[in-house]
């Protein structure tokens, strides 16, 4: 996956994801969008020139889910003047210094013709040299001095945050229909 100079940390329902800034995006407040009908997966529309771009309402599993309490939507540009969006509960901009994205490929069949919707992963809370409570293949606990054990306890816990592959995410959103 291409290295981005900035990322958006996006909360969608109970899911937390990163969107690479290189993809080209716009964050729109709800009051600047026209709300869609209650039926269907589209929550709102963004007017761009003579077109309107849909913003989908999703849950943390990225399945369409109707939600009323949202304040902003993120639109990903797929071509000049074209794109698709989704409703986000929380958005933070992170610089490349704050994020170390490693390669990651989900297992199983890709959900879109453009591939998997995730192309990387960030282990947040990582500190260089950090060790796990781990065992070797024989089931023996790894050894360590008291100081090392204490150091491990003081480390922040690690969490995986999946990084969107924008092209595949666009393909997935467009497959939801209703636009």
């Amino acid at each position: 996956m291409a290295k981005a100079t900035q990322y958006l940390r996006v909360q969608i329902g109970d899911g937390l994801f990163l969107l690479p800034g290189a993809s080209g995006y716009a964050i729109e407040q709800r009051e600047n969008l026209s709300t869609a009908d209650a039926a269907g997966p589209v929550a709102a529309w963004r007017a761009v020139r003579n077109r309107r771009l849909p913003a989908y309402s999703l849950d943390g599993a990225l399945k369409p889910a109707r939600r009323e309490t949202w304040q902003r939507a993120i639109f990903i540009e797929s071509a000049p003047g074209d794109g698709v969006g989704f409703v986000a509960d929380d958005v933070h901009l992170l610089t490349e210094e704050e994020v170390t994205v490693a390669s990651f490929e989900p297992l199983g069949p890709p959900p879109t013709p453009a591939g998997h919707v995730f192309g990387g992963a960030w282990i947040s809370g990582t500190t260089p040299g950090m060790e796990d409570d781990r065992r070797d293949a024989g089931g023996r606990a790894s050894s360590g001095t008291n100081a090392e054990v204490e150091r491990r306890r003081e480390q922040p816990s690690k969490h995986v945050i999946l990084v969107f592959e924008p092209r595949a995410l666009v393909a997935y959103l467009q497959s939801l229909g209703g636009a």
Binding site: L62, P109, D132, R135, S157, V160, L162
Partner: peptide, 15 residues
Amino acid sequence: EVVNVGEIVPVPLGP
């Protein structure tokens, strides 16, 4: 390696 079960983050749209 054999490790303890920690936080497993779901992968949306996976099998």
